[in-house]
Amino acid sequence: MANKNKEKLVDVKNLKTYFYTEEGVVKAVDGIDFEIYPGETLGIVGESGCGKSVTSLSIMGLVESPPGKIAEGEILFEGIDLTKLSQAEMRKIRGNEISMIFQEPMTSLNPVYTIGDQISEAIIIHKGLSKKEAMKESVEMLKKVGIPLPEQRINEYPHQLSGGMRQRVMIAMALSCDPKLLIADEPTTALDVTIQAQILELMNSLKASYGMSIMMITHDLGVIAEISDRVAVMYAGKIVEYTDVNTLFADPKHPYTWGLMNSIPKLDRDVNRLQAIPGIVPNPLNFPDGCKFNTRCPLAEGKCFTDEPKIVDAAEGHKVRCWRYKDLEEMKKQNVKIYEEQR
């Protein structure tokens, strides 16, 4: 890939974010490595509780502490380790060079302040503009995210806007200081499908015009396909597969990813029942020995129950964390259904 030669914007190395609770240590993120290059979109996909949101909060330095703590690892942003910065230094980066949008547009805006107030706030602190100038900027931002009548909207309150509009406001707020990285934590999950498509399209076009990178966190493979350049699949606090988006969809090498792909209904195939991954995500307080996916994996055997696999290069630019990915390859060739159809 061409962008491999570019300087990395974000380089996460062996990040471990743990929560020290009364019941025990929850290893929400347990040793993950990934990098984001300038101008690309990295998708992070996984089920609820796999650690994808905690990953994003770790980068933002917003993990609630206590009980949470970055126990180990580095988050290099343009070569600076964010985990070593003070709160004051971190505040200069937050909302300025790295900004974030959240899942729930209905609750992510403060109900008691106007849209303009909330957008201009970040502009005032990071760009040092006066309130008046910042308001003007805010109007410009609202125009860019496609909100009609921005001069009027700026004086309105969040409850006067629809969910899609509010997410646009969130995007305007996040982009107001030209961030280099936008972290989007399930930005479309709470929206209905047509609005989802609009928001993704908006993000794609803004990414191009701003030249920023996006870290897209989602559980929705459709969103990943729509927007990502490369994808990290997370399971139980670890990355289990990491490659570019086309390879991932064409040739998933981890049984978990394979299961996710198979559980998507397909319009071009006549299927009565979907193949689903059995079981649920294991309790983070009580992860199984060996591979964390062994409680649900149809291929799990012997070694999978005793030793945790390392993430290895299965092919050029295609990492996978599985003892049996080669066997899966064989089975795929022979068209064996490894997951049962759901009754």
Binding site: M60, L62, Q87, R91, K92, I93, R94, G95, N96, S99, M100, F102, E104, T107, S108, L109, N110, P111, Q118, E121, A122, I125, H126, M170, M173
Partner: peptide, 15 residues
């Protein structure tokens, strides 16, 4: 613990 407080922190506001 509301989302908008998280948003405010994410903007880089002082505590």
């Amino acid at each position: 613990h509301q989302d908008y407080v998280k948003t405010a922190r994410a903007k880089g506001l002082k505590e």
